[in-house]
Nucleic acid binder design. Structure first.
Length: 455
RNA sequence: GUGAUUGUAGCUCAGCUGGUUAGAGCGCUGGUUUGUGGCACCAGAGGUCGCCGGUUCGAACCCGGUCAUUCACCCCA
């Protein structure tokens, strides 16, 4: 058999020791924040029944689902004519499981299955990988982690306010100083569509308007009419286009007038205003937060608040997002469960911190001290020392072979181990070990007890 | 799914209009230093130039195909 070059599937990555140190730094920050706000951890399987997953993410989403081929003779159900009928017929016969696409749908499934045992409102967080058969590019992977926090069983706007606070805490703790949390309300979108006379087309409206910064108003107008908008409706939008992102109170005031004829739109505005007054009551500023009534976000199940976070002046897309849904569990037979949640994209946050050089403080030293020695006799002596260090909760290792001392030092240096204990015949005779500080290069002979104190 | 981009040493890349034994930096191994890492100096190992075919006296370079990569669009974290 010929030797083959190993490789990874497109869009997947290994995380070596230094990447893991940085990832854990991010993940710990997020997990600690979730716990601080009273969320409890949940994990669900990597694979779900395909029936749980399909139909929840739209047609495109279904395309992006990874399907798992049935075990054994997966073709046994397939008839010759099925193949000519197309994948739609064959797929259910060869695959009954798929990899999770996000954490929200598995969570909804869990809530429905455990509805009698859960304490509502239920606050859960979940940090796990998800998989999408997307075409990878910058900041987009086929396997990536989401860190979700959701509250289900209440429509209190305190949840929305607390989400904003958690975002600010996490980003602050990670050293990010230039980012924008966009917030909107789905009802406002509905209201805008209503006011311009294009009810129900808010999705199209937003995907077009979203490109305003990139392609300009004229091109957006073209796209809107391609998507079937009346010229009259489009012209009614121009006040919004000219509306600049000013103070939040000004934006709200502008839309109170614009949406005056839309009951649902005004309701959305009212909710948004309530979130900000709660924020104020919680003693939080509005820094980093802007109201963007054109923020849409893809998933069609949002019904209330919508969030999205972008770090400014970096080449990565949104790093966090979420919103409120009134009927997440409805498809699984449990109606009227309101919830609100959001997700941090760890992989993108990682890319952002890397791009901004904010990982400097994260080191990945493993052991605090390494035992080096000259010969077999010293090795036995060193084994006792390394165990004693570990008993004192000091992360320690011993070089596994009686190699040249130079080689042992190089190893310690490369692994960023800050201290080395050297054991030779002299040390064994006197009982005083040589402790070397690798950063300064200085070394001293001292008793083990003294070393334990020092480390 | 659409449109581009790039494939040369472990990594990042150079290689003039096709012309002998394909180079550099970093990394790696060894030595200067048989009880001392980083720094310096010296030496060395390491390449079917992505793969297949074509043009040519001659191809890393030109042409065709193929695979892989990265980026953008769509959509998304």
């Amino acid at each position: 058999m010929s030797i083959q070059k190993p490789g990874l599937p497109k869009g997947t990555r290994d995380f070596g020791p230094s990447e893991m140190a940085k990832r854990n730094y991010i993940l710990d920050t997020i997990r600690d924040t979730f716990k601080l706000f009273g969320f409890q951890q949940l994990e669900t399987p990597a694979m779900e029944n395909l029936s749980t997953l399909t139909g929840k993410y739209g047609d495109e989403g279904d395309q992006l689902l990874y399907k798992i081929l049935n075990s054994g003779d997966f073709l046994k159900e397939v008839l010759p004519q099925d193949v000519t009928e197309g994948t739609g017929i064959v797929l259910p016969k060869v695959a009954e499981k798929g990899l999770r696409y996000d954490l929200t749908v598995p969570f909804a499934r869990y809530v429905v299955m455990n509805r009698n045992d859960l304490v509502f409102p239920f606050k859960r967080f979940q940090v796990q990988p998800v998989w999408r058969a997307d075409r990878p590019q910058k900041g987009r992977y086929r396997e990536f982690y989401q860190c979700d926090a959701d509250v289900v069983g209440t429509d209190s706007l305190i949840c929305e306010a607390e989400i904003l606070i958690m975002i600010k805490r996490v980003f602050g703790a990670l050293g990010l100083k230039d980012y924008t949390v966009k917030i909107n309300n789905r009802k406002i979108l509905t209201g805008i569509a209503e006011v311009i006379g294009e009810s129900g087309k808010e999705q199209d409206l937003c995907t077009a308007i979203d490109k305003l910064d990139k392609i300009g108003w004229d091109k957006v107008k073209e796209e809107l009419s391609q998507r079937g908008f009346d010229n009259e409706s489009i012209s009614k939008l121009s006040p919004i286009v000219n509306q600049t992102h000013g103070a939040i109170s000004e934006t709200l005031e502008f839309y109170r007038i614009f949406l005056a004829t839309s009951e649902i739109g005004l309701k959305g505005l009212e909710e948004l205003a309530e979130v900000f007054s709660l924020l104020d009551a919680l003693g939080e500023s509005q820094e980093f937060i802007i109201v963007d009534p054109m923020l849409a976000r893809g998933l069609s199940y949002y019904t209330g608040a919508i969030f999205e976070v972008k770090v400014n002046n970096v080449s990565i897309g949104s790093v966090s997002g979420g919103g409120r849904y009134d009927n997440l569990t409805g498809v699984f037979g449990l109606p009227d469960v309101s919830g609100v949640g959001f997700s941090f994209g760890v992989d993108r946050i990682y890319d952002v911190l890397e791009e901004l050089g904010l990982f400097e403080s994260v080191t990945h030293s493993s052991s605090k001290v390494m035992v080096a020695y000259f010969g077999e006799e010293e090795k036995l002596y060193g084994l006792k020392i390394v165990q004693e260090l570990r008993n004192q909760k000091i992360p320690a290792e011993i070089y596994p072979e009686a190699a040249k001392i130079k080689k042992q030092f190089t190893y310690a240096d490369k692994k960023n181990i800050p201290f080395v204990i050297i054991i030779g015949s002299e040390e064994m005779k006197t009982g005083k070990l040589t402790l070397k500080n690798m950063a300064s290069g200085s070394q001293n002979a001292m008793e083990l007890e003294h070393i334990l104190d020092l480390l």
